[in-house]
Write a protein that binds this DNA or RNA. Structure first.
Lengths: 311, 311
DNA sequence: CTATGGATACAACCCTTGGTTGTGGCCGGG
DNA sequence: CCCGGCCACAACCAAGGGTTGTATCCATAG
């Protein structure tokens, strides 16, 4: 199905006749006739009743019309999403179901008129490069890498500390615990596939390991959260860390448990990064919204690497 | 833009390489390459970075991807909306902003999983024919026409009495009234363009006129509610009737007033009509919903023509 | 270092799609 | 009864889009 044909259908429906629609679209009446005929062949029903003084929608055509308009609207938005000028606010985050997505949902509820696009870049290095180039407008990341300060033109503000939770299967030794201390985790196998060297999130877990003497296995590629959850559920001796604000597609019947970690509670520090001279109007709105709704961070009893930017 | 191209884009993004996407779509890799190139030319930005072992999305491509998926979803719904089998529940009503649309909004809130399509047929005769043929599943109308009973296979139930209101401009003699009695309306010019002979809504106003000795002018074609509202606002001696549940796009600065009518309050009786043997599962859900949320009708102090079906 | 395999891009060819022009049929109004 | 307006059908033509064949690039294995 071609969107030009859909456009033709809408124009013909609005005009009530093919000829006027043809004039609007700068094609001949015969072309409109052929397009409509092709569309009717595609969907398998008659959309217009042709009369000697025009064409009016059939019931099926009436039902189809709003969907056609919606189709054109969505196409419009799709194109503007990659337009260089006046495009939606484009935000990078760690993962589509991470805590940052919760913040963005809140922002969207508060400002439904602002168009948003979410992308997921590899690490903060890529994110900073994308912010500097203007490819994205903002990023939710942990900053900065140890010994690698942010460039001058990038600003950042810490917006959310996400408490880590332990994820275990039903047969795990800690499965029935209401909460566990960091000290209790020493000696347990914690599996986090996909930790890539040189990324800021791997640096975070490296620090966590060094600080509290934990054992984190990063072996094997990451086959996706489904496969990870399956393995965790089936392996009694295995656990993994998960952001406490992560909304999982919870697999039914796996018996997985999320267990808070305490003494101290490791928190993953999300900061908002943006380029100082980025003129996107929605960026200021986002910053104001986050400042207004900022959750507590750097709270007592929590731990984060000392290289993260201060609160 | 062709939806086949969008489909190709999504397939390539999912596969991470053109070759596999080509195999899925049963075309050659070269065709995929050309389609993607055409799409990139259309939107004006690069969507993939080609590597020797595949193609991965650029940031723009990532931003575009969810829009592309949405586009395909909407297209799918558009097609199923005119599919004969398992299509959305198709409901006819008097006007898109009439009281019936409020009922349907409530139904949609209660059952957001049920797809709906709204159409507006000419009159009850057309609606009954469409219901019998299966072209639509239900209709909100005033039934039945005087002396013209519903066919055997059509059922109906009165679901909502909509009180009429008087709509006047700021300079009208009744503009400052909190409410008016029917008796007060005698002698005032009431203008309702577009009252077509033989329709059930014209029959309603004919009865109203006969019962209370009103003056309703139906002269002139209906140029749409905007034009009607403009005229009403500008003409001191002119008023019109409007459904009390109608949600107008209220023109700013016109000073229009909506005035309740009493002694008695004329109500427009909306009934739900459907074919007894219509198997659409959502139809039963709609009937149950309307039965559960039924607003009062046939209340004391209201008037409706005696030919409408009993409550 | 070289050969190989797998991936994309480019070129040539050809068919099909889709546009235009020309024409006929239908119905309502003067 | 004729005329005018509108849509459908046929013929023609150009261009888009698919296929086959080939070049290029890079990672990996030998």
């Amino acid at each position: 199905m071609d969107l030009d044909i859909v456009r033709t259908f809408v124009a013909a429906a609005d005009a009530g006749q093919f000829q006027e629609a043809a004039a609007e679209l700068a094609i001949t009446q015969q072309a409109v006739s052929k397009r409509i005929a092709a569309l009717e062949r595609d969907v398998g029903v008659r959309l217009f009743t042709r009369t000697p003084r025009g064409a009016e929608l059939t019931i099926d055509g009436q039902a189809f019309l709003p969907h056609a308009r919606e189709l054109l609207r969505v196409a419009e938005r799709a194109v503007t999403s990659v337009c260089t000028g006046r495009r939606p606010l484009r935000v990078d985050m760690l993962a589509s179901r991470s805590a940052a997505s919760g913040l963005m949902r809140g922002f969207h509820r508060a400002h439904p008129e602002i168009d948003l696009d979410v992308v997921m870049l590899f690490d903060i290095e890529k994110a900073v490069a994308a912010i500097r180039s203007g490819a994205i407008d903002a990023s939710f990341r942990a900053v900065a890498m140890p010994g690698r300060p942010l460039p001058e033109d990038i600003e950042s503000v810490r917006v959310l500390d996400e408490p880590l939770q332990l994820l275990v299967g039903p047969a795990h030794a800690l499965a029935s615990a209401r909460s566990v201390t960091v000290a209790q985790l020493a000696g347990h196998r914690i599996w986090m596939p996909g930790l890539a060297p040189g990324t800021e999130w791997t640096a975070y877990y490296d620090d966590l390991v060094a600080e509290f003497g934990l054992t984190i296995e990063a072996t094997g590629p990451n086959f996706g959260s489904d496969a990870l959850l399956d393995t965790i559920a089936d392996t009694p001796a295995l656990a993994t860390f998960m952001g406490g604000r992560t909304r999982l597609v919870w697999p039914a019947g796996h018996g997985l448990r999320r267990i808070p970690v305490t003494d101290p509670t490791p928190v993953y520090p999300h900061s908002l990064l943006w380029r100082r001279d980025n003129p996107h109007p929605a960026l200021a709105t986002l910053r104001a919204h986050l400042a207004a709704t900022a959750a507590g961070h750097g709270a007592a009893g929590t731990w984060a690497p000392d290289w993260v930017i201060p609160r």
